[in-house]
Computed example of a mutant assay.
Amino acid sequence: MGNRFQDKVVVVTGGNSGIGLATAKAFAEEGAFVFITGRRQDALDAAVKQIGPRATAVQADMAKLEDIDRLYDAVQRKHDHIDVVFANAGGGDFAPLGAITEAHFDSTFASNVKGTVFTVQKALPLLRDGGAIVLNASITSIKGTPAFSIYSATKAAVRSFARNWILDLKDRNIRVNAVSPGLTETAGLNALFGGGDAAEGVKASLLQLIPAGRVGQPAEIAKAVLFLASDDASFVNGIELYVDGGQAQI
């Protein structure tokens, strides 16, 4: 492993599973001190064991501003700054037009949009000038998906944040980029598709849409996040990086 992030301070929201966990592990393997969040303490404890001694877990729901404050309080107890924020926490469920409820709308926008906004905004006093922000968007923001319009709209908003925030933060030389995964092998995806054999069947039926011919792995998304957060991407700003086996290009 390299040491691009040696002794850097990195925040990964939703870092207790899936893409977030894979990314937190990758940062730690390259020398970073990593703060992860999640809503379940047992999952956080298991994640810290996987990541290693450079990880600190904070139980938090990123849709709640008081929980975001608790995250950054925890950071400040150990460090005086942040180098990288990966705003990854979020999720969604299927709901076709005609069956969308107010609760479904509110919870999805709270998690994916409100949570992203205030995760980043509340990090700014600690985020060093020249730091990096990576937002987790999705190819659903540009690809039509049945019964997934609310989730897709939230990810379009997340992608838009990157374009706008690079202007708000240009005087501080803080880069903001979005990574947009396609189908990725995570527990969340399997649960969305019904779990077990049902999930495997859905994924198999979708492979024809992916030129690479397979579902992505969380570690592959993590590599893209680390690139965007690193000095290797020092002139990369405001982009959306698709990590989807080519699905968004056809």
Rank of each mutant, 00 (worst) to 15 (best):
L209H: 14
S180H: 14
A89N: 03
P181M: 08
A60D: 01
A24H: 06
R70K: 13
F118G: 01
N190E: 15
F86H: 08
V202H: 11
A32R: 03
D83N: 14
S160Q: 15
A219F: 09
G130M: 08
A74W: 03
A32E: 07
A46V: 02
V179Q: 02
L71F: 02
G38P: 04
Q247T: 14
Y151P: 01
Q50C: 13
K223D: 13
T186V: 05
D7Q: 11
A110R: 03
F86C: 02
K155F: 02
S149T: 12
V85D: 06
A46H: 06
E185T: 03
G2W: 12
G31A: 08
G98A: 06
G196T: 10
I221C: 01
N237Q: 05
A63W: 05
L71K: 00
E240L: 12
V117S: 07
A219D: 15
V34Q: 04
E200V: 12
G144V: 03
L167H: 12
S149N: 08
K203G: 03
G182V: 10
F227Y: 15
S234R: 14
L228H: 01
N3E: 14
L169C: 02
G238T: 03
G91R: 00
H79E: 10
V75S: 02
T13Y: 05
N136P: 04
R172W: 10
L207C: 07
K49M: 09
A222R: 00
G130F: 11
G98T: 03
D42N: 15
S160Y: 04
A123P: 11
V11C: 02
G182T: 09
A74Q: 11
A233G: 04
T119P: 02
S205E: 13
G201W: 10
R214N: 07
G182N: 10
T56F: 11
L189T: 10
A178S: 15
V10L: 04
A74K: 10
G194K: 11
R54A: 13
N3L: 14
K223F: 05
E185C: 03
L189K: 01
H104E: 12
A95Q: 10
I239C: 13
N164I: 10
S180N: 15
R40V: 05
R70C: 02
D129M: 04
R128L: 11
A24M: 05
G201I: 05
H79Y: 15
G14F: 00
T56M: 09
G15D: 03
V120G: 05
K143D: 06
K122Y: 11
G131S: 07
V9P: 06
I51V: 06
G98L: 05
V202Q: 12
I133D: 03
A43W: 09
P125V: 09
K49V: 13
L189P: 03
G115R: 00
P211Q: 10
R39N: 06
G194Q: 11
A123W: 10
A47Y: 06
A233I: 08
Y72T: 00
F105A: 00
F193T: 05
E240H: 07
K49F: 04
N88H: 09
M62W: 03
A95M: 04
G245W: 11
A57I: 04
S230N: 09
L228N: 00
L126Y: 07
N16C: 13
R77I: 01
